[in-house]
Design a protein around this nucleic acid. Structure first.
Length: 562
RNA sequence: GUCCCAGUAGCUCAGCAGGAUAGAGCAACAGCCUUCUAAGCUGUGGGUCGCAGGUUCGAAUCCUGCCUGGGACGCCA
């Protein structure tokens, strides 16, 4: 069903082997204006080789080329425009989607190989902020997309459950905390302590030393420190579970930083054995000046390890445990340098698979044009935002469709979907200004628009009582054709989205398909008893299948009714 | 200072393995519900594609420099 390729082969067969087929494929484009047809071949590059004007080439090719899948070809200046046979093509597209259902657009390029994805990774004892939302939803979508492409994926939540922050937290807890307060409202109180620490430390620098010392004791296995750590961690995980429940996201592993505590010595030994470690200002580092990069800190002057050490241990462990072919890190772009260093160190250690590790960065959620800082306590809680979204969705349902059953369930799907979709429709590298109104909009280019379109389609199908044996004929009117062509594009969209590790490609695609279906819906009477009715219903079914599958890949649900 | 990301309509953003006339949504204005969900559809207005060079038959798209905004640059992650 790859008409682009077939078109290219036709052209190729009339060029006496002067140009490679693949080169022709890469030249073929889709005309911007539908009056120019469905496929276009610009003849400029051939002009020199064939010593003919592009116009002449287009005209010659047009006379020679004909094929069952082509209705006609028309030379238009230097372009050869191809018009697909709408009748047969539309019939095939509709049939194929109805057959394959949710598997339409799946690939086997992954060949069952494994990809590990490190995403979400919130810090213990800190609230789940809007900032973590990005890693969480982008990572989850890329995981789904990878599966769709035939990979086995391992979703890893690399919890920030270790590090100097626990030294700070223990220090603060011992100075100003109370057990009752923490029990009452764990995250809030722990976070309050964390913020207080940073406020006070500005005037009392010795607090930082205390924190370092506590962390060192924690690493050494000090009983009191370990008890506190365990407690803080458990309370935090309970809180995170609520968020993941709302977002409907699961992980295969919660092995966080603490998990690698006993695996770091080995890393340091290897580094030493390969003579990669050097001492600088009392700290142990891997020098990267050859690569034009600042050194990678492995061990602090007080002997404590750093996140680079843990990430090295984690990479080695994951390779050994999961035998991944690729390994993705969905982490903010501010950590770009860290990952460059990490990958380089692994390369220097002699692991050729280091080339398959990939940092997938994303932009910030900004507040008034600036990065939000957790340390100062200025943070917007994701849970609050989600609850507000669900609330608003519920109110909208009450206003628009008060008789709907499962109002609460649908409100959740719509509210959560709005937040996920708002994030994923932007290219991940872009910064996003935090704007609740924008996020909770329920019109225009939103998740709801897609859900609504899907529900409209499903509603028709319920009314129509579809027959099993669909006798499908081609649909050739312009509204159907636009929808068909978009449906035909879905597999390419999946592939592009995977190759660029860019969920927004799919988000924009489902918006586009929705828009075209809504036009179709308002211009064509679907439930009308004539020879094409079955075909129209099959088309509607195709659209709902693709919309639902597209949303699923993004982590958004598609309710039957709204 | 070095490095990374971004700069396209009033606002939010697509388009950037170069191609025909630069597109959506929001906002503004004007229409469309006795017919499949109006959370929708139709129409109107709105652009020096940050600036300057370069490569090319052809540049929003590729290269160089500059400007603006955000971020990173050793003991946080």
């Amino acid at each position: 069903m790859n008409y682009r390729q077939q078109f290219a082969e036709k052209i190729h067969s009339h060029l006496e082997g002067m140009v490679d087929v693949n080169e022709i494929i890469s030249l073929i484009e889709e005309p911007k204006y539908s009056t120019h047809g469905d496929l276009a071949f610009p003849c400029f590059t051939l002009a020199r080789k064939l010593k003919k004007s592009p116009q002449q080439i287009a005209a010659d090719l047009s006379e020679k080329i004909n094929a069952p899948f082509l209705e006609k070809t028309v030379p238009e200046g230097p372009y050869l425009n191809g018009f697909l046979n709408k009748e047969s093509v539309s019939r095939q597209v509709i049939q194929q989607i109805n057959e394959k259902q949710g598997n339409y657009g799946s690939f086997s390029i992954g060949n069952g190989k494994t990809i590990t994805l490190d995403f979400s990774s919130p810090n213990i004892a800190k609230p789940f902020s809007m900032g973590h939302l990005r890693s969480t939803v982008i990572g989850n979508a890329i995981a789904n997309i990878s599966e769709k492409c035939g990979y086995k994926v391992v979703r890893i939540n690399h919890l920030g459950d270790w590090g100097t922050q626990f030294g700070k937290l223990i220090t603060a807890y011992k100075l100003w905390g109370s057990e009752e307060k923490v029990r009452e409202n764990p995250i809030k109180e722990l976070f309050h302590l964390y913020v207080t620490f940073h406020e006070k430390a500005e005037k009392q620098p010795d607090l930082e030393d205390k924190a370092r010392s506590w962390f060192k004791q924690l690493e050494a296995g000090n009983e009191e420190a370990s008890q506190l750590w365990k407690w803080f961690r458990e309370e935090s995980l309970k809180e995170f579970a609520k968020i993941y429940g709302l977002l409907d996201i699961q992980f295969d592993s919660y092995d966080g930083e603490a998990f690698y505590n006993d695996k770091m010595d080995a890393v340091i030994q290897v580094l030493k054995a390969k003579d990669l470690l050097s001492v600088s200002d009392g700290a142990e580092v891997v020098d990267l000046t050859d690569e034009n990069m600042p050194p990678c800190l492995i061990r602090k002057k007080d002997g404590a390890t750093l996140y680079a050490t843990r990430d090295l241990a984690a990479a080695l462990y994951r390779r050994k445990t999961y035998h991944f072919e690729k390994s993705f890190y969905i982490v903010g772009q501010e950590q770009h340098l860290h990952f460059q260093q990490l990958f380089l160190v692994l390369q220097k250690m002699g692991y050729d698979w280091a080339a398959e590790l990939k940092h997938i960065p994303f932009g910030f959620i900004l507040k008034d044009g600036k990065k939000m800082s957790t340390r100062k306590g200025k943070v917007v809680l994701l849970e609050d935002v989600i609850k507000e979204a669900i609330d608003l969705a519920y109110k909208n349902i009450e206003a628009k469709n008060p008789s709907l059953v499962n109002k609460q369930e649908v409100a959740k799907q719509v509210g959560v979907g709005a937040i996920i979709f708002h994030d994923l429709k932007h290219e991940r590298q872009n910064n996003i200004e935090f704007n609740l109104d924008e996020m909770l909009k329920f019109e225009g280019s939103t998740g709801l628009y897609v859900q609504y379109t899907h529900a409209r389609g499903r509603s028709i199908l319920r009314k129509a009582s579809v027959k099993d044996d669909l006798n499908i004929v081609g649909l050739t009117d312009s509204h159907s054709w636009t929808v068909i062509k978009t449906l035909m594009d879905f597999p390419n969209v999946i592939e592009k989205s995977f190759q660029h590790t860019e969920p927004s490609v799919i988000a924009r695609y489902v918006l586009n398909l929705s828009q075209e279906f809504n036009k179709y819906y308002s211009h064509v009477k679907i439930l009308s008893d004539d020879a094409e009715q079955n075909s129209r219903l099959a088309l509607v079914n195709s659209v709902t299948i693709v919309l639902k599958e597209g949303l699923r890949l993004l982590g958004v649900q598609a309710p039957e009714q709204l």
